[in-house]
Design a protein around this nucleic acid. Sequence first.
DNA 1: ACAAAAGTGTTGGATTTACACCCATGA
DNA 2: TCATGGGTGTAAATCCAACACTTTTGT
Lengths: 249, 249
Amino acid sequence: MSPYDPSAFPPFAVTVDLVVLTVRRHALCTLAVRRGEPPFQGRWALPGGFVRPDEDLAGAAARELVEETGLCVQDPGTPAPAPGTGAHLEQLATYGDPKRDPRMRVVSVAHLVLAPDLPAPRAGGDANSARWAPVETLLGPEGEASALAFDHAQILADGVERARSKIEYSSLATAFCPPEFTVGELRRVYEAVWAVALDPRNFHRKVTGTPGFLVPTGGTTTRQGGRPAQLFRAGGATLLNPPMLRPEV
Amino acid sequence: MSPYDPSAFPPFAVTVDLVVLTVRRHALCTLAVRRGEPPFQGRWALPGGFVRPDEDLAGAAARELVEETGLCVQDPGTPAPAPGTGAHLEQLATYGDPKRDPRMRVVSVAHLVLAPDLPAPRAGGDANSARWAPVETLLGPEGEASALAFDHAQILADGVERARSKIEYSSLATAFCPPEFTVGELRRVYEAVWAVALDPRNFHRKVTGTPGFLVPTGGTTTRQGGRPAQLFRAGGATLLNPPMLRPEV
DNA sequence: ACAAAAGTGTTGGATTTACACCCATGA
DNA sequence: TCATGGGTGTAAATCCAACACTTTTGT
C-alpha cells in the first residue's frame, strides 16, 4: 500500500490542552476547568479544545488561552517573553494513547504556559467553572478523590516537571513575575516552584551577577515591607550559565 | 457549538517521523530515506509513516523503526536503555503547520532515537534507498542543495539539539555505545555529538567518579590500541549530577 | 625501543555555601 | 525602637581545568 494515498489515512481528532502555571500565595497553581458534560462530567480537567483546520498548533494554544483566561501571549516563535508583554508559551508533549478518550481517537498536543499572578479566571467554552488550584491538591499522593479527567494528571505532572527543570538553566522564572519585580519576588517564585527555601543573600548575588538576566529599571518598591528593593525587568539572556542549582531534597 | 460533537471535528492525518542518530566514524549521523514519489520526489527525508488506528504514538515510532532499520527498542516506557537491549526512543516534538504538507493537513509527532553504530540500513516502505548521512551535510550552512523534504530540516535540527543538551545531564550517551564499551569510546561519543575535544584524563575521572553511571564488567579490550582498557556497561543512573559540562565554543 | 591509548596525581583558580554584618523603611 | 526584608563581605569547602607523569599493550 502507498502510505500517502490521500483517501486512505486514518482520521484523528487533534486537540491542544493547556497546562497554565502561576504562583499564587507562595504556591504553584494551575488552571483547571470543571467539565460540563460526559465523559468525566463534573470532574476537573485542563483547558483545551480542537485545533482548527487553518491554524497551527501554537496558534490554537494561544487562542484557547485567550478564550479561557483573557491572557495574551507574545509571538510564540519568540522563546522568551519580551519584557512586559505577557506569558510564556511552549509546546510540552503529545498524548495519543488510543483509549485516552472513550469517544474517539484524539491526539492532544499539550502546551505549557507560565503566567504572572492573574485575577480569578473567567469560565468559558464547555466549562461551567474554572479555578486556580495548587498543583499539590491535584497531584498529591491522596489525589484519588480530586483526580483529573482523561490523562490530564499525567500531562500536568509532565508540565510541572518541565517548569521545575527549566527554570534551573533558563531565565523562564521571570515569566511568573509582573513586568517589574524585585529580586526577592523572583526568589519566592523559585521557592514556590521548587518547594524549597533558598538563601536570600546568595540568591541575590547569583541573579544580579549573571549578565543579561536582570536589568535594573531604576525604580524601587517597598511593597514587600522592609528596606526598599530595586526593581528589575527580565533581560535578554535566556540561558543561565552557570545554572541556578536546585538544592538536594 | 459543542467542541465534542463527534461528527463535527476536523479530521487530521497523524504521522510519526524519526530522527535516528548514531555515531559513525567520529561523526554524528542520521538516517535519511530517499522519497520515491511526489511531493519532494527524489529528495532526502526522515523516515516515518502514518499512525494506525489501534496503536499509540511510541508504538508507531517503534514499528517504523523496525520497518526501516530492523532495530529493536526496549519498552518505550523505560527512559534509559537497559544494558544491551537496544536503542533509546523518546518523543521529540510535534509539527503541525497547516502548510507543512502540500497535500493535506498532517500533524507529525517526531521521535528521537539514539542507536549504537549499525550496519548499513535496508530500504523499505515508500523509500527506494536509505543511508546514514552526517548531520553536517544535511544541515550545513550550504545545505540548500541537499535540503530535506517538508520541514524535516527543522525536525532534524531540533533532534540534534535535544541530543546535544541531554547527554550533558543524563547518561543517554551510553545509548550510542554497544552493550560493553570503554571510557575512551564513550568519550569519543561526546566528542562526536558536541564536535569538541575533551581532556581524556579529566573525562575518565568524571565518568568513573559518578556513582551509578558506569558499571565495570571485569573484562578489558585493546580494540582501540594502546594499553588495555576496562570494559563497562551503563549503570542504572539516568541523571548526572554534577552534569558533564559542554565546553564553550 | 617506540607509539598509542589508559589511567593517576597534583595544583591553582573559580565557584559555592554558610553566615556575620550593615542598610533603609514602616509601624 | 523594633521588626522586616534588602543587600555586601568574607572565609572554608568544593569543584574543575590543565598538565606532568606512570602503566600496559601492539609493532
